[in-house]
């Protein structure tokens, strides 16, 4: 046991750090893009506050196209764009953009569905009080949807952890990469299972936190 830790401890800690770094950075950018995108999907629709058929159709198409691509394909598909925007296509820096492009449309859909769960009567009530649409969205709609939004974020975070496992292909490291490199390619099952167990625990912890926070916020 102590031998195992001495031999692999550093590798695993580094892998976990890489996974968490990728997940957290991507999640932050994903929220910055995905939440407004979700709001736009709802509010540019016919029944939204700013109905705009062409904008809505455009957003729908983009989201649907991105949502239909598996991450591994997307990763290679946007390589030129990644190189242009980030300057590199490898390492953690190289993988953040594809992860965001993969995850933001997913989060946008989750945000959209949680916003649609808010009773339209509440929005009407606030409109009847003479409160601006912008304030209604930022202070009323997102507030009422917050429990669903947290559930969506939980799903997105877990989805991201899955996607980061593939990031190893472009040398970004992480637990998934360790499981693949050492476990699968070098036939070292102990290191593979260890990585997998840590990944499972990580997902469990995120899901549990998400559940508790979401329930607290429901009322």
């Amino acid at each position: 046991m102590s031998n195992f830790i001495a031999e692999w401890g550093n590798t695993i800690v580094n892998g976990l750090t890489d996974t968490l770094t990728m997940t957290i950075i991507t999640l932050i950018i994903t929220v910055i893009i995905g939440v407004p995108l979700g709001v736009l999907l709802v509010e540019t629709n016919v029944k939204g506050m700013y109905p705009n058929a062409s904008l809505h159709a455009t957003l729908e198409t983009i989201v649907n196209i991105l949502r239909s691509l598996p991450f591994i394909i997307l990763l290679f598909l946007i390589l030129p764009i990644t190189r242009f925007l980030v300057g590199t296509t490898i390492g953690i820096r190289g993988v953040i953009l594809p992860l965001v492009v993969y995850c933001a449309p997913f989060l946008a859909r989750l945000i959209e569905s949680s916003l649609l769960d808010v009773d339209p009567g509440i929005i009407e009530a606030y409109q009847s009080m003479g409160i601006s649409n912008y304030k209604i969205i930022s202070r009323v709609l997102l507030r009422e949807a917050r429990s669903g939004i947290i559930r969506g974020l939980t799903l997105a975070a877990i989805g991201l952890i899955g996607a980061t496992a593939m990031a190893g292909l472009v040398g970004a490291g992480g637990l998934g990469d360790i499981a693949y490199q050492y476990g699968f390619q070098r036939y070292q099952p102990d290191i593979m299972y260890t990585s997998i167990v840590i990944l499972i625990i990580l997902v469990q912890v995120i899901q549990s936190i998400g559940n508790v926070v979401s329930r607290r916020l429901t009322k």
Partner: peptide, 22 residues
């Protein structure tokens, strides 16, 4: 002006339309 007018007109609804989170 419409917003100002709406401040002077209260409205109540069949479904109350209260914030559940507040």
């Amino acid at each position: 002006k419409l917003a100002q007018l709406r401040h002077k007109i209260g409205m109540i609804f069949q479904n109350y339309n209260l914030l559940k989170t507040a």
